[in-house]
Every structure is written in structure tokens, then in C-alpha cells.
Write a protein that binds this DNA or RNA. Sequence first.
DNA 1: AACGGCACCTGGTCGC
DNA 2: TGCGACCAGGTGCCGT
Length: 271
Amino acid sequence: MPELPEVETTRRGIEPHLVGRNINRMVVRNGRLRWPIPDELPAWAQDQTIVRVERRSKYLFLVLERGTVLVHLGMSGSLRILLDDPTPNKHDHVDLELDNGTRLRYHDPRRFGLWLYTETDVHGHRLIENLGPEPLTDSFDFDYLYPRTRKRKTKIKTLLMDAKLVVGVGNIYANEALFLSGIYPHKLAGRLTKAECHSLVSNVKSLLAMAINQGGTTLKDFVGADGKPGYFAQSLNVYGRAGLPCRLCATLIKEVRTNNRSTCYCHQCQS
DNA sequence: AACGGCACCTGGTCGC
DNA sequence: TGCGACCAGGTGCCGT
């Protein structure tokens, strides 16, 4: 579910409610996520103060006094701030009870997410250390991208979704960025022109920035920390629009499979 | 090293 | 109405 804009929307939503608060108790109802939640995590987190909330790639870091909790939302996860204690449903797997009576509740039907922790520098964590640059920083630019496409025989869409190249671009935004740049998703990365790489860098940045400003994309079940959906879905040009007319040329949008993921594109606008 | 495929899990939708 | 097949926003890991 959540790509970078949805995770950043979540971060912005929860941060003001968490920073400076003490964790009274961590309740794990079902710890069988992508990896099991460590048995000792609740006791370790208890009575620690939350210093700040960061995002790296699609991971959220709850920075505590003596280490960091890593949270990933997987395909179907969400985090909400609750002002009271409504009865949890069967997919509300984790609660962080804070010292002012509010709580952070983790909901994840498919349980592809994760809650792990480290007592050392989180950027050196094995899941984090080999990630590529953040797309919205200056470290992701033409001079970075272009040489990394040379001699690559993989499809540009596959490369764009590879977190070792650049983080945060999942299936929706890969489809959308390629449309904005007029690039056929199955074009081999090594065949991109310099102009196409310039365009792709530019469009990835503006696309993600706009999506964040709209509170992310809600196709089905994504909600921000306040429980409200994002509004970027109405701005999508190709994803979820197979069979509908292209907004630029009215040609019907096609849908094909790329490494078992759906790929939507305009045959006329993208080559 | 680079690349493609699979698994992990639940729930919604579609066709018969 | 019921049932099975298939699909879904991620990504680490495995085999080639």
C-alpha cells in the first residue's frame, strides 16, 4: 500500500503527537508480522521518551532515548493516533500507550509490515544501510541516475522500483513518473537518453512532492494518522486507468504485467 | 553482479 | 448464494 508519500504523510501526522511523550506501555496483540516482533521490544520501549519521528525510504523510525524502533507499513499497514481507547479490531496488532492517555495504533490486515528495534545507529541497520538515496534530496539527480542506467538490461520501471537505486518509488508512482516523462515502461534502462534521465529525475521529484501535499494516494484503505484518506488518486494519469482514455491524447490506457506487477501506460505518449 | 521469480498474508472482486 | 481463482500499494531472499 504505502509508498513514500503515504509514509511521509503518516510521519507528519503522528510526529506532533509523539515527540516528547513517554511510552507507558506497548501492547502487542499479534506479533507475527513479516518478521516476528521481538519478544523483548515492549519491555525495552516502556518508560522511554520519544525524541523524534524520522522517515528513511518507506521505514519510519521512532527515535527513543536509548535506541530506535523501526516500523514498516508493508502493503496494508497504517498508523493512527487515538485520543481514547476504542475496542481494537482483529487487525489492530500493536498499541503504543502514551503518558497523556493517547495512543498510537498499528493496523495491518496482511501483516507484511514490521516492528523491530536497534540500540545502535539505525542507519547502520542491515535493512537500512544499503538503501539508495532519498528521491527528494539533491543526492538523487541526473549525475547520479544517468551513469547507473548505462549497460543495464533491466526494464526502466523495474530499475525505478529498485530501492538500491532510489527509495520510495513503488508501483503506482513508477507508472506515473514514466507517463509524465513519456517513457515506455519496458524500455531497457541502458537505452534511456540523457534527456529522458533528466526528465525522469525531475518528474519523480515533482510527482512525489505533489502526492505528499495531497496527503498521499488512497486507492482502497490507506488512511493518515487522523484516519482520513489521501487525495492524490484523482491526479493519477495511468495507474488504475486501464481501458480509459489518456488525459493527453485520448488513446486508451493499456495494462500489462512487469515482473508480476501491473503496469499501465499510454502506448501513444510513451515510447 | 545482475536479473527474475517467489514467498509472506488477508480480503475483496469476478466469473461460473 | 457459494466457491475457487486471481488480484492488491512491498521487499528480502533465493536460484540462475
